[in-house]
């Protein structure tokens, strides 16, 4: 279930090659973290998985069938910002996810169906530690709480793949550690396949069962747009215990990790 396959995927914009020769098989339930320098196509890769962009060439498969070319309920997403709806309270944000999935005509549930959905939303909020904030609006939450809400909202419909676009990039280090514990816990509980972009190498190695490094292996100084980035390292971590971050990666990516995060 929920196995993601890429077969020779390319993404080009006119002459410019952004991503090239992507070949990958990700098994169900893996936690894939993605690192790489700014502008090396990490976000483009995630947008293709999300359906916001389509591959220029190649095949992108979920359980053997091509992914729909638009965002859909089989893929959940948590962005770095703007991931929750500002006009709804915390509980209504999660309830909305259930209502949108179950009521295609009005986007609203009534009566018994609504009560059941409310209970499910409340349970989800308790699971991410937001039970006490159910009636607040997102503007009254901290950055970490907003991301907890975004995660709860994305997971309540049990998507097959969860995409995380630098979800903790804007948070304080202390809060980040809490969020790592949370995401690890919900990932283990739901068995969802996770793809997470991060700028933080230790984060990538601490959370992932597999780290993908995006980089441009070929550069033509006369035509910098001629070659794109691809997966240059594919590091499996599961079952090996804690793995030290390879020194070569640290050297390559450190300037990026310290620069302000604009992907």
């Amino acid at each position: 279930m929920s196995r993601v396959t890429l077969r020779n995927v390319w993404r080009t914009y006119g002459e410019q090659v952004v991503l090239e020769r992507l070949n990958l098989v990700v098994e169900a339930g893996e936690f894939v973290t993605i690192v790489g320098a700014s502008g090396c196509g990490k976000t483009t890769f995630l947008r293709m998985l999300l359906g916001q962009e389509t591959p220029s060439r190649g095949l992108l498969l979920l359980d053997g069938t091509p992914l729909a070319a638009e965002p859909g309920p089989e893929r959940g997403i948590v962005f770095q910002r703007y991931s929750v709806f500002p006009h709804l309270t915390v509980q209504d944000n999660v309830l909305l996810a259930l209502e949108l999935a179950r009521a295609p005509l009005l986007g609203r549930l009534f009566g018994r169906a609504r009560r059941a959905a409310r209970e499910q939303a409340a349970a989800m909020l308790d699971a991410v530690g937001l039970g006490a904030f159910a009636t607040r609006y997102p503007a009254a939450l901290s950055g970490g709480q907003q991301q907890r809400l975004a995660i709860a909202q994305s997971l309540v419909n049990a998507p097959r793949v969860l995409l995380l676009d630098e979800p903790f990039g804007a948070l304080d280090p202390g809060i980040r550690a809490d969020m790592h514990a949370l995401i690890r816990q919900v990932w283990k509980a739901s068995g969802v396949t996770v793809f997470m972009i991060t700028h933080d190498l230790p984060e990538a190695f601490a959370l992932g069962t597999r780290v993908l490094v995006f980089d441009k292996p070929r550069v033509d100084p006369q035509a910098p747009q001629a070659y794109g980035a691809t997966i240059t390292y594919d590091i499996p971590l599961r079952g090996r215990g804690p793995v030290a971050v390879p020194a070569e990666l640290v050297r390559k990516l450190t300037p990026v990790a310290e620069a302000p995060a604009h992907a």
């Binding site: 999300l50 916001q52 638009e70 965002p71 859909g72 309920p73 893929r75 959940g76 997403i77 962005f79 910002r81 703007y82 991931s83 709806f85 500002p86 006009h87 709804l88 909305l96 996810a97 209502e99 949108l100 999935a101 179950r102 009521a103 295609p104 005509l105 009005l106 986007g107 609203r108 909202q153 994305s154 419909n157 998507p159």
Partner: peptide, 27 residues
């Protein structure tokens, strides 16, 4: 409106009509 919100609603199962009704109109 941030495009993130429009995309997010679609990943939660919204169609064009419910997206307008529950996400765009109230905002």
């Amino acid at each position: 409106l941030p495009v993130e919100l429009i995309v997010k609603a679609q990943t939660l199962g919204a169609n064009t009509w419910t997206l307008i009704l529950r996400v765009v109109l109230p905002q």
